[in-house]
Design a binder for these strands. Sequence first.
DNA 1: ACCGGGCTCATACTTTAGGATGATTTTGAA
DNA 2: TTCAAAATCATCCTAAAGTATGAGCCCGGT
Lengths: 155, 155
Amino acid sequence: MTSNPLAKHKLTILYGVSLALLLFLLKWLELKLMIVNHAYEAYIGAVAIFFTTLGIWISLKLTKPKTVFVEKAVYINQSPGFTINQTELDKLGLSKRELEVLQLMAEGLSNQEISERLFVSLNTIKTHSAKLFEKMEVKRRTQAVEMAKRLCIIP
Amino acid sequence: MTSNPLAKHKLTILYGVSLALLLFLLKWLELKLMIVNHAYEAYIGAVAIFFTTLGIWISLKLTKPKTVFVEKAVYINQSPGFTINQTELDKLGLSKRELEVLQLMAEGLSNQEISERLFVSLNTIKTHSAKLFEKMEVKRRTQAVEMAKRLCIIP
DNA sequence: ACCGGGCTCATACTTTAGGATGATTTTGAA
DNA sequence: TTCAAAATCATCCTAAAGTATGAGCCCGGT
C-alpha cells in the first residue's frame, strides 16, 4: 500500500534489531555462567528453548493463511421485498447510464424507445448497450436482461 | 478418528524419542568440542540455528492450517416453489410449441439458437414468434419475456 | 371423409439490433 | 489543474428480428 521504503522493510529491520539485542543477551549470559561452570548445561538448554520458541514464533508470523473457498448455494426469493444485489452490480462495473439503459431494456423497450425516454439519440443508446453487453459478457439484450434478473440487479 | 490410545499419542511419543536422541547428540557434540575450546561459539551458534529450525518445523507441523472461509454465492434462478399461472396461460391461448419458444426466448437465446435446440428451421421459429407476439399483444421478444415473467407463465 | 388447428417451411421484404471505430464534451477524482 | 472515465453522437456495415403471405403435412373431432 504505502510506497515508503522504510515502512516497507519495517519488519525486516525489527528482526535485525531483535537479533542484535539477543546476541548481546547471549554474550552476557555466557560470561555470567562461565563463572558458575556447573550451569553450562542449563545455558545450552536455555538457548535451545529460546531458539525453539523463536522458530515457532517466526513461522507463525510468516506463514500465510491458507484460504479455502467454500461455495455456498443461496436461493434468492426475489418477488417479495426486492433488494438490488450491490455486490454483483459493483462486480460488473456498470456506469449509471448503462444501468438505466439495462433497466429500460428489461421493460421490453426498443433502443428507439429508450433513446426517446432518456432524451438522447439512438446512436448513444447503441453505444451504451454495446458497452453493457461487453461488460456483462453477453451477446444480446435478452441475455443481458436474463442475467440481470438472475443476479438481482434489476427486479 | 482411531480410538487407539497408542496411535492417538503417536506423534507425542515420536517427538519425545526425537528429543531424547537429540540430547544424546548434543552431549556427544559437547564432549567433542570441549577439547577444541575455541569452537565454543560455533557450537552455541549451531545449537541456535538447529533449534530455530526445529521450532519452525514443529510449528509448521502442528499448526492447523489457518482457513479463511470465503462464501461464494451461487445464484439459482429457480425460486423454490414456483408455480406456473395456468389461468393466465390458458387466457393467452398459446400452443405447446409457442410456449417452448417463449421459454427459450426468456433464456436469452436467439431465433437461430432456438431453431437448433428444437430441431426446426429458423423460419419456423419466426412464424411461432410472430404468432406468439400476436397472441400476447406485444411487439418484441423482450416485451413477451417481460410479460411472461410478470404473469408467472415462466420462472 | 372433411375440416380446422397446430406445426412445419419457404420467399421476400422492412426494421431493429449490434459491431467497429472515431470524435467531442462533461465530469469527477487525484 | 490535469487526467481518465463517462457520456454523447456519428457513420458504415452486418446480423438478427420481425412482417406478410402462401403452402404442405398431420392429427383429432364431427
